[in-house]
């Protein structure tokens, strides 16, 4: 374990945050945080979901969904063999059709990062690792920072951590902010994705505050969910976070990415999220550098739909590679 050297903020300093209580996200981010009206937000998300995506637009969306995908396996039953076959699929999702692009990244637990890193070395597909006491994100901060640094050391290009919701919901915003900042430092050159676990935040106002707080603390991406609790990504949550990203880019001139994850299984869902991105943040965000979909089973449905667009009929589901 390499420990203290990689930490931006000593854990002892992060332990006491009494002075941070009541320091609001607005102060921490230095930005006004506009409220979110749940009725208007869900109405707008519903309208975007109804966009009719046909023919050429569907083809472009499906191809983009593949390019933006974090092909994920986060199971206790994961084996090196399973990760190796996932990496092969990530590089060449449709062996019969070289026009189908590679996915953005393969996302695994830290234990399997060396396997994925070896398999993907020299390819454009990145290795993403969850870290920081995933999926709770509530372990001792020193342990969490060590895990981040270790995963990067083992070859992870991207780190997915979980926001400390305990601190955030208790109003210890300073602590939540500092922990993200320290995680960013611990990740070094690796990209940091901060999972807000929106299903536990209780309101869109809280989602917006957490988004601003994570971005101000240095997150490269903000991400909806771990996929490990009942409520994962929804279209309104993604829209809420995209609006926060837009405000942050307006004020700070820095483009932060959005990752939606959990429960996204169908090709139609994937293009609904792309519509939200396209009509909220615009063309720059329709790129794996700024948009990701974390999913395990989605890819197969997207491939089926792509095949159908090409051939005009639904292929057999068992045609896709596991």
């Amino acid at each position: 374990m390499n420990t203290v050297a990689t930490r931006a903020v000593p854990s002892a300093e992060l332990a006491g945050h009494d002075e941070g209580v009541g320091l609001l996200p607005e102060r921490l981010s230095g930005l006004p945080i506009t409220p979110t009206d749940a009725v208007g937000l869900t109405e707008r998300a519903g309208a975007l979901a109804k966009r009719s995506i046909k023919t050429t637009a569907k083809g472009a969306a499906l191809t983009l969904a593949v390019r933006c995908m974090d092909l994920t396996t986060l199971e206790g039953a994961d084996t090196p063999g399973k990760v190796l076959s996932l990496c092969a699929k990530a590089l060449r999702p449709e062996p019969a059709d070289p026009d189908v692009p590679a996915v953005a990244a393969v996302c695994v637990y830290p234990e399997l990062v060396p396997v994925a890193a070896a398999a993907l070395a020299g390819t454009p597909v990145r290795v993403a690792s969850v870290a920081g006491s995933f999926p709770a994100g509530l372990g001792p901060i020193g342990v969490r920072l060590d895990e981040i640094a270790d995963a990067v050391q083992a070859g992870a290009d991207e780190i997915d951590i979980v926001l400390n919701r305990s601190a955030f919901l208790a109003g210890r915003y300073r602590q939540a902010f500092d922990e993200v900042a320290a995680s960013k430092a611990a990740a070094g050159h690796a990209h940091l994705k901060v999972i807000l676990e929106t299903g536990e935040l209780g309101s869109y106002d809280a989602v917006r505050k957490a988004s601003m707080l994570a971005m101000a603390a240095g997150a490269d991406f903000i991400k909806t969910s771990t996929g490990k609790i009942g409520t994962s990504a929804t279209l309104p949550v993604a829209l809420c976070m995209a609006e926060a990203i837009r405000d942050y880019a307006d004020a700070e001139g820095r483009a932060v990415g959005l990752k939606v994850a959990g429960g996204i299984r169908t090709a139609k869902q994937s293009w609904q999220y792309l519509v939200v991105m396209a009509e909220t943040l615009g063309a720059p965000w329709l790129h794996p550098d700024l948009f990701r979909i974390g999913a395990s089973s989605l890819l197969n449905d997207v491939l089926l739909q792509l095949d159908r667009l090409g051939n005009g009929g639904y292929p057999r589901p068992d045609k896709t590679v596991v």
């Binding site: 966009r51 009719s52 995506i53 046909k54 023919t55 050429t56 637009a57 569907k58 472009a60 969306a61 191809t63 983009l64 837009r246 880019a249 307006d250 004020a251 700070e252 001139g253 820095r254 483009a255 792309l274 396209a278 009509e279 615009g282 063309a283 720059p284 329709l286 790129h287 550098d289 700024l290």
Partner: peptide, 23 residues
């Protein structure tokens, strides 16, 4: 400022998808 955001050069421009090119 959004237009001037630090977006990597290669990602700007049409993504081949979006309201300007819905079929």
């Amino acid at each position: 400022a959004a237009a001037a955001a630090e977006v990597p050069e290669r990602v700007t421009g049409s993504a081949g998808f979006g309201p300007d090119c819905y079929a």
